[in-house]
Design a protein around this nucleic acid. Structure first.
Lengths: 223, 223
DNA sequence: TTTTGTGAAGCGCTTCACAGCT
DNA sequence: AGCTGTGAAGCGCTTCACAAAA
């Protein structure tokens, strides 16, 4: 089923992000400069798209000859389709403290890709604190937390960004799962215990710092 | 130099996080239940710690016999040391909007591991907006952005969490690098162009959503 | 000649299966 | 009996090197 290796899928995701910013064709060696990823890996990754013919894209993706390469206009949609990202998905933000509310007003999500329509739609925000829900101004509809079940299932929200305090994370996640959520991006600093069919990605800042520290270490063995 | 494979290092990081919450010994099969990672992989990963003898830990890490396994008390420090996390490192937050300020008041970082001292120290916060610097209350010293160079190099800050708007990210990152920063955790939604010796980890919310979507997809091929 | 596309080789991680300890 | 520790087999991703196209 999964014919494209996972590492390749992740690289294609990055490649897509890069190419979205360009209009002119990019050669694999130019992409190597931009991403740090070797050009032969780029070419191999793109070649995986050919074997995948969903019946739609059977041919090549690059242009040959003197001044050519991969055309963003063609390759980006091909990647998006191969990765199953061609269907718009609704998501919500749960917990509207400093972190959660940052996602409401395009501080992060909105400015991610200005010209990127129809991929993800922020459909709702939730918070336990009714006051906060009423005070916050946002183009996104906000609801008190007890309405999670109703709103998530009614609108068919598939993904949640979880930004509640650690103590509430597990309970909030379970409420989301009961409402039919399929994936959770967890910013709360605790691992969630959920059924295996629920896809969870954790953003643990401490672990990120540790991972940075691991990679910093080698250059100064022991100062 | 890097004798422990990268995937194993990441798993050891997660293992460490799990074990920090326990006092009693955990068997590899129990850990499998907790992490989802197969028990033989756990054992193999732990065994990498033996080959690494920095002169400190030469022996075994697990207890044999009836009711035994890996003792957190012993294994956690061993992992920390093998991964080079035994030296306290200072970090700072750059950009104190909703997102950045969330890291100041333990909303995230502080509550990550309550009992975890001496690993990372939040040494400073910076913002371009002098007003913000003066108004925000925090146990962490806050400075206007123009002091980044001075403060980072004076205190020997090695890591920065970058939370500025997209338009300012590249310039801020370059300022940090000039001041001697070694790693950046980038929450700004743009890739940074920096010298290769600088370690960067990006937290792109859009990419996280996409990765969730990729893994959600298979169960409903095309609804 | 430059650049893509790809089978095949190479290599590193994962998995296996069993020895060793209690 | 039960669990850890680990060499060796297995396997999948990366890399290579060359054919094909413009």
């Amino acid at each position: 089923m999964t014919l494209i290796p996972e590492p390749a899928r992740v690289r294609l995701l990055h490649l897509m992000r890069i190419m979205e910013r360009f209009a002119q064709p990019l050669s694999s060696s130019r992409i190597e400069e931009l991403t740090g990823c070797p050009s032969h890996t780029i070419r191999k990754d793109v070649s995986y798209l050919n074997g995948e013919g969903d019946g739609e894209t059977g041919g090549m993706h690059g242009h040959f000859g003197g001044n050519c390469g991969y055309e963003p206009r063609l390759l980006v949609p091909a990647i998006r389709s191969a990765l199953g990202l061609d269907k718009e998905r609704k998501f919500c933000v749960v917990g509207l403290g400093r972190l959660g509310s940052a996602f409401l007003n395009e501080e992060i999500s909105g400015s991610l890709e200005p010209s990127l329509g129809g991929e993800f739609e922020l459909a709702a925000g939730f918070d336990k604190n009714v006051n906060r829900v009423e005070i916050l101004k946002s183009a996104v509809p906000l609801y008190p937390a007890y309405k999670i079940g109703e709103v998530v299932s009614r609108f068919g929200i598939e993904i949640a960004i979880l930004c509640v305090p650690a103590a509430e994370a597990q309970a909030s996640a379970e409420k989301l799962v009961a409402a039919g959520i399929r994936g959770i991006l967890n910013f709360a600093p605790v691992p969630l215990r959920l059924p295996p069919e629920i896809v969870v990605r954790n953003v643990f800042v401490l672990d990120e710092l540790r991972e940075l520290a691991i990679h910093i270490c080698p250059s100064s063995p022991r100062a």
